[in-house]
Design a protein around this nucleic acid. Structure first.
Ligand code: ZN
Ligand code: ZN
Ligand code: ZN
Ligand code: ZN
Lengths: 160, 160
DNA sequence: CGGGGCGATGTTATAGAGTAACAGCATGTC
DNA sequence: GACATGCTGTTACTCTATAACATCGCCCCG
């Protein structure tokens, strides 16, 4: 699971893995990964680009053949975020699947402004620096958010 | 002792200083800090809590005695953000005045979930950690966003 | 088996955040 | 004055998210 995710990788594996991990985690925790929630999770994993709730909604409606209400998706997303299966990218109002649920999350992302891909990283140095500076100021950290906008390796090569 | 801003400070000074600095900076740059933009800047500085565009809009409408369109505020905010006079807090969809415009900005905030105050920091260690990890992955950083949710010193004392 | 509780889902309506397109106005410059 | 440029106003619209309330399904307990 490198940060270097080849552009031509077999993404069906990513999806299958994500669903398998989600099943295991929820079973272990006694959380109910219902059919609806599982389907929303799958739709979040459509790609490695953060997806808006309404994009997911549209897919879901189409797949179900009937129109679905926004709330349906938002509630599912809320559950998935609580379980750490999905992260919300604040600066994009969008959601992305977590590649390593169950592990500790610091919530750090490299977001490419060219291709839209977002890679989750968990760099202890960033987390340490945040904790240090917060401690120095007496600030109690609850949820650190790090979203780095920029350009990924692939896109740099394509547009030098 | 609080980070930099006692809860009982004279906030009129904060506002006056911010406007003075803005005047100077814009004059120096040849940017036009029009009456409208200046007023929006003042309204952003209403407090040290990030404010939503529509809250500012409401204040502006009331102050002007006539209803104003959202776009008016958004355009002013866009200008102010470009000039580095105001920052947008992504995780809150809200705007806050910059205490040190003109200087280099890394965009780091400690946001208290209890009182809503947001303190801008510019910790070189955080920035360095981000640059390092990005470099290791071949990611070119454009705009790093760090928004740490948690609880400020004052609020910790009040609710143990 | 028959409720009763509780969490998940459905429905409808509304709030909040942001933008597009176009017109008018105010500068300053030549 | 004529023009160019940039700021502001107006209208309408999209996207994001939540509130309030009804309903359904499932498990537990009697
Ligand atoms: Zn993949
Ligand atoms: Zn890219
Ligand atoms: Zn102040
Ligand atoms: Zn506080």
């Amino acid at each position: 699971m490198s940060a270097a995710r080849p552009a031509d990788h077999d993404h069906t594996h990513c999806i299958a893995d994500a669903l398998t991990r989600a099943d295991a985690l929820c079973a272990e925790r006694g959380a109910r990964l219902t059919a609806l929630r599982r389907q929303v999770l799958e739709l979040v994993w459509t790609s490695h680009r953060p997806r808006g709730a309404y994009a997911i909604l549209e897919d879901l409606s189409q797949r179900e053949g009937k129109s679905t209400a926004p709330l349906t998706v938002y509630r599912a997303l809320e559950f998935l975020v609580e379980q750490g299966l999905v992260h919300r990218i604040e600066s994009l109002n969008a959601y992305i699947g977590c590649a390593a649920p169950g592990a500790v999350h610091s919530g750090q992302f490299l977001v490419c402004e060219a291709c839209g891909n977002a890679v989750e990283i968990d760099d202890p140095r960033i987390r340490a620096a945040i904790d240090t500076t917060a401690a120095e100021r007496g600030f109690r950290v609850n949820r650190p958010t790090v979203e780095v906008r920029g350009m990924c390796t692939d896109c740099q090569e394509k547009s030098p």
